[in-house]
Amino acid sequence: MFGYSTLAILLAIGFIFGTVAEKKHLKELREKENLLKGILLSTSKKHSFLKDSQHSTLVTGHVVVALDYFKRFVASIVNLIGGRVFSFESLVDRGRREAIIRMKEDAHRNGFNSIVNVRIETSNIGGSAGKKGGMGAIEVMAYGTAVKHS
């Protein structure tokens, strides 16, 4: 009996705080993306303007994000049936956008206006969400070479 009520409380806390935090985060992401849209991103290595640029440096951005208790519970149920795991999709999306924003901020701080050869890497650090003790935390890292071009 005690076990079920604890589970219900944790699910409720996870659902309420998780949803509020997600909405806030998405709003922040939109604002920051708007501010930084002047910085060009490219996954290509070859650009005609690279010949003329005198300065370039490596820029990185990373973030570790985790699922809330409710979403992890939903993910473990979807795991039984199969299908799209919506709760994970939004987490990974938020993580990637945040990492890209941090990389752009790094470039912007140092006075660069474009980033070429962008690579994005995702790795699981907290163990799988379904397993005991697993947090369902992922680390997203974005990196590239910042250059100045006119």
């Binding site: 985060h25 973030v63 570790v64 985790a66 650090i125």
Partner: peptide, 14 residues
């Protein structure tokens, strides 16, 4: 782990 979102401590650590 319950609330979800960014784990700032880990971001800094990494």
């Amino acid at each position: 782990n319950i609330l979800g979102g960014e784990l700032k401590g880990y971001t800094e650590l990494l």
